[in-house]
């Protein structure tokens, strides 16, 4: 029967029907697909390259030659300080004579002071400090990569039409959607972990390679405000959430490009313009980016107008860490809910 597509013996030789899959098994299948995707590989390569560049930058910033050079500049500054103060006082005296006002103060004592080494950013290259710096600056980028991965992970299924096929194998929509969200979360977190681990390894190498000679007299590095692991966990959590948000938006918008467009549009229009332009900056309390900052940096601040009984003035407002994570979790929950409901209700054609 060479004419049929199916050999007559197409019955399973294994002689058993499909066993069905547990939720964990389904997550496993989704993770396998995520791993096979081209974009995942691109993202991994991009993260590796970005981390490499950051580490290289830290390396060249802290090379012994550069530190020595900066120390030289610092010494020159130190030597010049008394002369600068002296010149300042002379000019101050001239001005006082000219105006007859003895209270004129040029602030010469401060001008004559040299900044400390810490203030100049001159310190021994220490692995944890380098990691901390790179990690903080990478956190937003990692979140964006995770969001993109999640969005495209789901968006591609709709645009290729394979979501329909998938649903004929696994018709429970909520189950399908939640396994995809979990896979996107794992993917986002993995990207962040990869970046942080590579950064830390790189930073350790920098600290070894760039250990300055004993002739350099550098102050001890100030201790980090919190253990590196705690910061790392927050960054991983951020990327994890971003992955989920990307996938959930993918469930709603059904197209990777649409998700990216909406997210960038939101960042520019809402975060960039609306938050600043209206209500004298008070909206910033509800800005996603500000709250991410508050979450990662354990609190942040913004400027907004506050009005007393008589007048209004711009003052610095603090945005607490708690506000940050509560706000972000609420946004995450909301987006997930909308994604699940939309996916459960809407036709897949």
């Amino acid at each position: 029967m060479s004419n049929t597509l199916v050999s007559p013996d197409s019955r399973p030789r294994t002689d058993r029907r499909p066993q069905g899959t547990s939720l964990a098994g389904l997550v496993g299948v989704e993770l396998r697909r995520l791993w096979w995707r081209r974009l995942t590989k691109v993202a991994v390569v991009a993260v590796v390259l970005f981390t490499g560049a950051s580490v290289y930058n830290a390396y060249s910033q802290s090379s012994p030659e550069r530190i020595a050079q900066q120390l030289d500049e610092y010494r020159i500054l130190q030597q010049q300080a008394p002369r600068i103060a002296e010149e300042c006082r002379q000019q101050q005296a001239v001005e006082r004579d000219r105006s007859g006002d003895q209270s004129i103060d040029f602030g010469c004592d401060e001008q004559g002071q040299t900044p400390t080494l810490e203030q100049m950013g001159l310190a021994l290259p220490v692995a944890d400090t380098i990691t901390d710096g790179i990690a903080r600056t990478s956190s937003l980028l990692l979140a964006f990569v995770a969001l993109l991965l999640g969005a495209s992970f789901v968006g591609a299924e709709f645009s290729t039409g394979s979501m329909g096929l998938w649903l004929t194998f696994q018709p429970r929509r909520l189950r399908v959607a939640s396994t995809k969200l979990v896979a996107a979360a794992v993917g986002g977190a993995a990207v962040a972990v990869l970046c942080l681990v590579l950064t830390n390894l790189g930073a350790r190498m920098v600290a070894v390679v760039n250990r300055p000679g004993s002739d350099l007299d550098l102050p001890p590095v100030p201790a980090l405000g919190e253990p590196l692991v705690v910061l790392g966990l927050r960054i991983v959590a951020l990327a994890l959430g971003a992955g989920i948000v990307g996938a959930a938006l993918g469930l709603v918008l059904r197209h990777t490009a649409a998700v990216v467009g909406v997210v960038l549009g939101f960042a520019v229009v809402v975060e960039g313009i609306v938050m600043q332009a209206f209500l004298q900056g008070r909206l910033q309390r509800w800005s996603v980016l500000k709250n991410i900052e508050a979450f990662i940096e354990r609190g942040t601040s913004y400027f907004a107008e506050t009005c007393g009984p008589t007048s209004c003035e711009f003052t610095q407002q603090t945005l607490s860490y708690t506000h940050g994570w509560v706000f972000l979790s609420s946004v995450l929950l909301l987006v997930v809910l909308v994604g699940l409901v939309a996916f459960r209700r809407r036709d897949v054609t």
Binding site: L5, S10, T14, P18, L26, G28, V29, R33
Partner: peptide, 23 residues
Amino acid sequence: LVLLAGAIGSPRQRVDEVLEATH
């Protein structure tokens, strides 16, 4: 096919069987 087989918990060797069955 491996992904779809995973979705229903079909044994892996079934993938080879159906590939063979459809030439």
